[in-house]
Simulated scan of single mutants.
Amino acid sequence: MKLKSHTYHRWLLAAYNEFALYGPHFSLKALAEKTSLPRATLYYHFSDKNHLIEELLDLHLQIANDFQSDLKKQVSRLIPDLYTIMFQYKGSVQFHQQLLKNNQLEGFAALYQSINNSSIRILLPHIKEHFKTKLPDHEITEFYATLTDAWYARLSFNNISAESMCQLALEIMQYTLGLCVQSEELVALKS
């Protein structure tokens, strides 16, 4: 198996950052200018832009696994711990947002949802504690997935901080908490 070169990693990391900013429509010409590498070397490592994007999605999954490992180790309370960690991964959060924005493209929605679902499973005890809910796990997971989508849809990277990420989450939770309470009231009525 051929080891990946330093040039490969420079292209990949630069493309990851470009994708985070512009989505899959980033410019290869601009990417070449930012890396100060001859554009021909891009094609030595990647057959075309689609191949590069496939590699970016694989890289994002690897980074998401690291993020989830940090969630397991560092979250003791949903808020603010989750957003403190997310801020440490802000470039990846921005990349992840692009997956949602471009979810009509093949593989983007599936990767976005898969990563979110894995993260929510890790966070489930903290979510239950935060909302003080006894809803079934599948309902909490669906509810929190909706919150997550709303959060990514509204997240702005102008003047981003852990505090602004947390504030946005609290704002969205405040507006959607009624959905969770109504659902819990329905469960109580059925009992």
Rank of each mutant, 00 (worst) to 15 (best):
A162G: 08
D137W: 10
Y152S: 02
A64K: 04
Y144P: 00
I122A: 04
M165S: 05
Q94F: 09
S92V: 03
K49G: 06
N117R: 12
K132A: 14
H130N: 09
H126K: 11
P80H: 11
N65W: 09
T35W: 09
H96M: 06
E129H: 14
K29M: 11
Q113M: 07
Q74F: 14
Q74K: 15
I172T: 06
I160V: 13
A169C: 10
A153Y: 07
D149S: 10
S76R: 12
E171A: 03
E129T: 12
Q68Y: 03
L71I: 13
S156K: 14
Y83C: 01
T133S: 15
P136F: 14
L31P: 01
L42W: 02
I79P: 00
T133E: 07
L78I: 11
K90A: 07
S161Q: 07
L71M: 11
S119H: 02
F157G: 06
E33M: 10
A30H: 14
E106P: 00
N50R: 14
L170N: 10
I122D: 04
L42N: 03
I127F: 01
Y83F: 15
T84R: 07
Q113Y: 12
H45S: 10
L56M: 10
A153F: 05
Q62I: 08
V93Y: 01
Y112E: 02
R154W: 08
K134A: 15
L52D: 03
I127K: 01
M165H: 04
N102K: 02
T133W: 04
Q62K: 15
T148A: 09
D66I: 13
G91R: 12
A30D: 14
M165K: 04
C166Y: 03
H130I: 04
L99A: 02
H51C: 13
R154V: 00
A64S: 15
L31A: 03
P38T: 12
L59W: 09
K128Q: 13
Q88T: 15
L78H: 03
T133N: 06
I122E: 06
L57I: 15
K128Y: 01
Q104V: 11
Q97C: 05
D48V: 11
A153M: 08
